[in-house]
Design a protein around this nucleic acid. Structure first.
Lengths: 152, 152
DNA sequence: CACAAATTCTACCATACTGATAGACATTCA
DNA sequence: TGAATGTCTATCAGTATGGTAGAATTTGTG
């Protein structure tokens, strides 16, 4: 039940890209440096997000990545599903990779896990990157005199 | 974000033991056979649960396992924590294995993950094995004429 | 055209975790 | 004493995680 590094990095990268929405393509190198994410690893992550339709990319000189749509239309759940796969704790309650359990009629565990899945997806599919950006900005404003550099 | 086989088996075993609460020690062999759980694997699981204080054991002839306390005092969360470790999606929101994240002041992800942890533990720490037993019995009563044998 | 800058793709690697098995050891009771 | 039971340690195959390397492809610009 742990958020993978992949998802963690993806979220940070997407917050960064949300902050730079509609300012043109941003290069992997820049995100990697600013967010301190291993560059080659980040490459894989952004590629996955592009294939999931969350990002658009431009190859070649002056290429880079940008959000495929406005930050308020990208849900946290979209990202975690793309990178970590299904969210549900057991497959028999998964919307993404559903498969009936062998004792479906009497599976008590199923019922509880359904509750948990709903609780998790409730949070993940309500929270957008616009929300997360706002949270980030708020938390920066709160500490005017801090010496820390800008970090998500 | 997937329930491990360990926890899955543990839950089934504990429901079985809850059904037999105060009827004396039940042997691994019996649970393993009735719930179709690999015996040697189940041994490890029950041992862990005993060390976590959920079960009592008796060695030797006529030995076995039984609940350390009444089923309504054993929460689902106790079990999953014992077997899968911490429940929180990131350590900086974990009660069990808390460690501050390097950018704590401004960590936006932290806030969201805290919401998720609370949502999960809400379900897990409310649900007891007495509840789960009741659910199981209800679901059995519903299908009077089914040919399926008793299975959790 | 040629080159540099960027993404894309394929492959690889070390480590840890998962699910499971094996066998020796300790304890209890008849 | 010996059979039945839990306890402990070790091992193992398979898979996931986190990360790296390098060649191939695309694109803008001089």
């Amino acid at each position: 039940m742990k958020l993978s590094k992949k998802s963690d990095y993806a979220i940070r990268a997407l917050i960064y890209l949300s902050m730079n929405y509609q300012k043109g393509a941003v290069q992997i190198k820049e995100i990697s440096a600013k967010e301190r994410i291993p560059q080659k690893f980040l490459e894989n992550i952004l590629l996955t997000l592009r294939k999931a339709g969350v990002l658009n990319s431009k190859m070649g000189l002056r290429g880079g990545y940008e959000l495929a749509r406005s930050p308020d239309l990208i849900r946290l759940g979209d990202v975690i599903r793309a990178l970590d796969g299904t969210i549900a704790p057991v497959n028999c309650v998964s919307q993404m990779s559903y498969e009936p359990c062998s004792e479906e009629l009497t599976c008590v565990i199923r019922g509880v896990m359904m509750d948990i899945r709903n609780a998790i997806t409730d949070v993940l599919d309500t929270m957008t990157f616009a929300d997360m950006c706002k949270r980030a900005k708020d938390s920066i404003e709160k500490r005017e005199n801090s010496s820390l550099s800008y970090v998500i």
